[in-house]
Amino acid sequence: MSAAREMLCDTARAVFAEAAEAGMAPVEAAGFDLLLVPEADGGFGGDWGDANAVLRIAGVAVPDLPVAERILSGLGDAPKTLHAAATVGLMAGAMGQALALSIEHVNTRQQFGRPLGKFQAVQQSLAVLACEVAAVDAAAAAMAARLDAAGLDAEAADFEIAAAKLRANRAVGIVTAVAHQVHGAIGFTREYDLHRVTIPLMRWRGLHGNDAYWAERLGRQVAGFGGRGLWETLTARAE
């Protein structure tokens, strides 16, 4: 990660920590709406990689606040596809947090005289959860790379946005199910933090295009490429 992005992330963590108590005011004051605005227009001149990193942190710290909307407002009338792309960043963050909470819980909670994490069934479930988180992180990063190569032209990145949002949507079911299962009853309480990420994940799955929407849209695009054309297109788009 570049030093500039590192600093941006530190700022985001500090601002979102405050926002978790105070609501949107600190986010507005910090000027996140200028993140994607070019420097020439008085903005921060960030790219989608920066936005993705900030959204990932927002997905952990303030999943209930409209941070994605705030960032995109700087672009004027951002298309629905860009809102979907932003949601993927939030989802990656929230899923990472669901995994982190789960690991911490199974390492501390004891049953049968051992931490839950020592039981093979629990280990195997968490391995599955970790794979989903890795997949969504990778999808979000590759989508960001394409958006940046296309100068944030959502239409030019339609394939990658569709693939990433769909992959993230499909991960939600597994991630929320496993995280809640390994937590037991404590994860079902209002007091414990897990629902702060799992409920937003459930909401985001249907927001800006559910599975069926993106799958059919992507499938029609691919049908247009033809069987062999899929591979040719896929490799050409990334090079």
């Binding site: 499909r170 799958a215 059919e216 499938g219 033809g226 069987g227």
Partner: peptide, 28 residues
């Protein structure tokens, strides 16, 4: 490849959906 070719350029919704899902996973 064979699925996409068999589905043709204007696939039925169920086939388009499956192609989309498999593509998203493969790309990831």
């Amino acid at each position: 490849v064979a699925l996409i070719d068999a589905a043709g350029p204007d696939p039925a919704p169920a086939l388009a959906t499956l192609i989309g899902e498999l593509t998203a996973e493969m790309w990831t």
